[in-house]
Write a protein that binds this DNA or RNA. Structure first.
Lengths: 131, 131
DNA sequence: CCAATAGTTGAACAGTCGTTCAACTATTCA
DNA sequence: TGAATAGTTGAACGACTGTTCAACTATTGG
């Protein structure tokens, strides 16, 4: 049917022909879902900003309020608060209110594990460059 | 000296006073260097885009050329090539030339380890939402 | 009660980033 | 040799993101 041909033309955004069809098919079967990969990307995105990493490393050592973190990082309370909101929404940090002061801390040990593993990778990379 | 006072005013970008000076001092001592944290953020940034993740997951399964990856992901060769350049520069993938065709593959097992750990985190998060 | 202050919020701005397009190189094979 | 094709490149565009500013809420202590 001409429908099929039309469909193929519409979907082709690659301006090239497949070279190893079997490989493509096999790989397609083993790939995680689109949604899962988007979720994974979003998870890594949380750790991909140095301000957020600084906040997380600070909270690994102590429960801290917004002012403390602001002074520690030399940034405005607003900026810190915005990032804490992101980390809170992603369940990486939790908080506790005490009067006017809000104390933030790590939600669990995932953060520590993930940062340690990323750090190991970075340090190993550096070794390769200057052994 | 008025110099000192002026310095303090200049440096203060936090519009707030420290609440727990001891905590801030202690945390500051344990924090990794600024440069290290920037490097760590850049490392996580590589895994924070779903296209790059797709490419990396594909290469976990098989050595592939640019055309194969383009067809697999339904993207232009150009787009794939740009991302492969990023991954190549970061030593996450390597390549081998065979005539007109360039075969890409994972540089080492770091990628597998990091993705698996990120994925474990994502899957665990999902469990918490719907156990 | 009210001034002071911890923290939040949303809009605005600037910088970053991924994709596309068009032009290019390089290799093959007919 | 020259047409075809794998892959790269840089500019342009739009979307996204982190910071700042200003205005706001809420809590406290005099």
């Amino acid at each position: 049917m001409s429908d099929l041909k039309f469909y193929d033309v519409e979907m082709d955004r690659t301006d090239c022909t497949v070279i190893h069809q079997e490989t493509v098919d096999r790989v397609r079967d083993t790939m995680p879902d689109e949604d899962t990969l988007l979720e994974l990307a979003d998870a890594f995105k949380l750790f991909s900003d140095s301000t957020r990493l600084k906040i997380l490393y600070a909270l690994m050592e102590a429960e801290m309020c917004v002012c403390d973190i602001s002074v520690l990082l030399g940034m405005t309370k607003s900026s810190v608060s915005h990032q804490l909101r992101v980390l809170k929404q992603s369940n990486l940090v939790k908080y506790r209110k005490a009067g006017r002061v809000i104390y933030y801390s790590l939600a669990d040990d995932h953060v520590r594990t993930i940062c340690q593993m990323g750090m190991a990778h970075v340090l190993e990379e550096d070794e390769e460059i200057a052994p």
